[in-house]
């Protein structure tokens, strides 16, 4: 996952709804791969997609950073605990075998595939485009009285609040530091305690910002968003159709390689 990076390429111009759904679809079909050929094919596809986005590869590697330890841990588990009839090495509860090595390799590639493709989505799609897509995708649920416009509004307000709360947190942390709080010093209990002077003011100010926002919206006549027109209009183009067909082809080839 990464932060939106302003840019322009084919991947940027694709309809965000298509990108959003196909990213999830791809994460699903990653689990269909079961042999070297199918994993290699999916990896080639992801590298091709990264190439099309014209984004520096380094940004994708950065996406791995937050989950690095999770990957390492999972891979280590597979390496050491996969049961095997003829282990290469055995010590107490640990078993190291060829099967374990292969499974660990698959899991590692699976992580890479899923993280790269979702990083591709978040790097090339603004959060607001994603929330617009979710609204558009959920639209059919209106028939069963699901409050689609409200949910979409909640999403976009939540996204709008992120930078605001980051600023607010920095400000409060500075104020408490100036009053002698040392974050990240002392034992665990002391460290956890040192967050109380941040969290309480942060809650208080979030509530007051939310309250002000509600008043401001009501005073400008906001209703439930029914019949509201859109400033950003999503458009489904020929290239989006091509992307779907391309993805269908990828699935076909994958299914073929699977039984190969």
């Amino acid at each position: 996952m990464g932060r939106y990076l302003p840019g322009d390429s084919l991947v940027y111009r694709l309809d965000p709804r298509g990108k959003f759904l196909l990213t999830f679809y791809f994460v699903g079909i990653v689990f269909l791969a079961n042999n070297v050929a199918s994993y290699a094919f999916l990896l080639a596809f992801v590298i091709f997609a990264v190439f099309l986005s014209k984004i520096n590869f380094g940004f994708f590697l950065k996406g791995l950073k937050p989950v690095f330890w999770l990957i390492l841990f999972t891979v280590a588990l597979q390496l050491l605990f996969t049961p095997s009839a003829n282990p290469l090495w055995h010590w107490g509860i640990f078993t190291f075998s060829k099967e374990g090595l292969v499974i660990a390799g698959y899991i590692f590639i699976r992580f890479i595939l899923i993280i790269f493709i979702s990083t591709l989505l978040t790097l090339t799609t603004t959060p607001i485009e994603i929330s617009d897509s979710i609204e558009s995708i959920l639209k059919p649920l209106k028939k069963i009285k699901f409050p689609v416009t409200q949910v979409a509004l909640m999403l976009s307000i939540a996204l709008r609040f992120v930078p605001l709360l980051v600023d607010e947190t920095t400000k409060i942390m500075d104020a408490q530091r100036a009053r002698g709080v040392d974050f990240g010093e002392g034992g665990l209990i002391k460290r956890i305690k040192s967050f109380v002077p941040i969290l309480i003011p942060l809650f208080v100010s979030s509530f007051s910002i939310a309250y002000d926002l509600a008043i401001a919206m009501e005073s400008r006549g906001y209703k439930d968003g029914e019949g509201r027109s859109k400033y950003r209009v999503l458009s489904w183009d020929r290239r989006d159709n091509i992307m779907v067909i391309f993805m269908a082809a990828v699935t076909g080839i994958l299914l073929f390689l699977r039984s190969y």
Binding site: K171, D174, A178, D182, V196, P197, P201, V204
Partner: peptide, 24 residues
């Protein structure tokens, strides 16, 4: 570095903009 800044911060007090947001 960030260690041992307390003596400095004791000497230099700071009232921020809208300081009421530091109450907890």
């Amino acid at each position: 570095n960030n260690k041992n800044l307390k003596p400095l911060r004791k000497q230099v007090g700071m009232v921020f903009q809208f300081p009421e947001s530091q109450l907890f």
